[in-house]
Design a protein around this nucleic acid. Sequence first.
DNA 1: CTCCTGACGTCCC
DNA 2: CGGGACGCCAGGA
Length: 104
Amino acid sequence: MPASAFEKIYKIIRRIPKGKVATYGQIAAMAGYERGARTVGWALNYHSGDDLPWHRVINAGGKSSLPEGRGQLQKALLEIEDIVFDQQDRIDLKKYLWNGIQRK
DNA sequence: CTCCTGACGTCCC
DNA sequence: CGGGACGCCAGGA
């Protein structure tokens, strides 16, 4: 039982399959907060655990919003998941964006 | 109760 | 194309 909105967000993020990525807005929309993209990021920042594939969460620009420090870590983790970055350190959302939003 | 902040998104200039 | 500002939700002081 989702005691807080975080629970829902965490749950959704955990549903992200390997090799796929999701944007804050997308997750927010799936959680029911289409305009609460910030809340998603805030939840992740507040959360501290390895059970959450936070590295699969990126911004609408297909890039990590984190500082270089965590950004580097995130990039490394994503590369391990078969995700590639372009010269601009951006991810090809057309190929790696999680289509779980369709909940097919 | 009010003000501020935050791993975003989108519009406006 | 780049930068600035507002809006969104939730929590902490």
